[in-house]
Design a binder for these strands. Structure first.
Lengths: 201, 201
DNA sequence: CCATAATGCAAGCAAGCACTTGCATGAATG
DNA sequence: CATTCATGCAAGTGCTTGCTTGCATTATGG
């Protein structure tokens, strides 16, 4: 059974890598199978169709994302620490799968099945974050003269562009260890200085 | 001659629209030709290949980008105003072509010609901006305790994510008029509050 | 040791793709 | 009027794509 599970996982791994770099449309089932070290027929037997692979991949991503969130972001009174931890988690997750999520978000626009496999994804994330910002505004920890959605957008832009620059544009180097990278800290500091209620630096 | 030029431009226009929404791989020469109101053969006669179309499109984009920059961003002593104008210009340009540049940046990963067509593009932009940030740091207008490259990255992240959210993720509405949109102003204010040397708000 | 399930392999199919060829048309240019 | 040049049109070529079929091979577990 374990070999059977492995086969499926290996196929998903291969699909993830290929889609992250080439996009969904340009990733062929043959290439996925080859990279997974598996016969192409096996792919179809396990996932029925290319679309099926995508769907399974989407579900696995959602599972992992949820796991990471539960593991790393402890809800805390300390807004600064919470947001910084959240930023690191987002960046780490996105870098780990080589920008796959962002790439799929792109593809969702043109390939409808990608959107279906991905679910609400980014949109839900953004409004959840905006809600958090609003709470912290009311608690007096974030400046109140900025729309919380704008704040969430700025935060999301910070993390996503960090990833895009390194995975897509090839600018800058991906940090060896996200949890200690000072570049992220500086980037976040910039955001925090602009967004926090206190003016001190 | 003018009709001849028009044909080429129409083909590039069609290619730009289609690639922006469907990506390079999923955009067929047939679709481009049809949208341009032109026979498919004409496309090949004028651009040789699908990649030729892409290359020409990249060159046209570079030309236009240079034109916009020269036209809209007057070098000024006022750092705040200069950066805000620059942000607006970037956003306007990117929204005008429906996120095409970002899409192409993604495609550049798998289609080498795209990268060549785009040229140094984003990388050059980023280091140019970092240089500007450094100057303004030395002039005492931007805080000096942040790496200018990080600052440039944050700025670029701000504008590009604004565009990405509206063109790709379909979150938020594209502003009717970029030059007066208050969302951009708030977003920029967030950045400025974090990046400026003065602590006042 | 045998049944069942998972995998491999070879071959192929229909559709869609980028791209080509040969020829007709029509408008400008000289 | 003759030439040239950009374009249209119809047909087709070879390749790749997602996906299928039929059969042989290898484990795994009762």
């Amino acid at each position: 059974m374990s070999a059977a599970v492995d086969t499926g996982e290996r196929i998903l791994d291969a699909a993830a890598e290929l889609i992250a770099t080439h996009g969904y449309a340009a990733t062929t089932t043959r290439a996925i199978a080859e990279r997974a070290g598996v016969n192409e027929v096996t792919l179809f037997r396990r996932f029925e169709s290319k679309r099926g692979v995508l769907k399974a991949l989407g579900e696995r991503m959602a599972r992992r994302q949820a796991g990471r969130a539960a593991e790393h972001v402890a809800p805390s009174e300390d807004t600064h620490a919470t947001l910084l931890a959240f930023a690191r988690m987002e960046i780490e997750g996105a870098l780990a799968d080589n920008g796959l999520a962002m790439r799929l978000a792109y593809d969702a626009r043109s390939v409808s099945e990608v959107g279906e496999a991905l679910g609400a994804g980014a949109g839900a994330n953004l409004s959840g974050l905006a809600e958090f910002m609003r709470e912290r505004q009311e608690a007096g920890q974030l400046r109140a003269d900025i729309d919380p959605r704008v704040m969430a957008e700025a935060f999301f832009g910070l993390t996503s562009s960090y990833v895009i620059m390194r995975t897509v544009l090839g600018l800058g180097e991906a940090p060896v260890d996200v949890s200690t990278d000072s570049g992220i800290e500086q980037l976040f500091d910039l955001f925090w200085s602009g967004a926090s209620a206190t003016k001190e630096r």
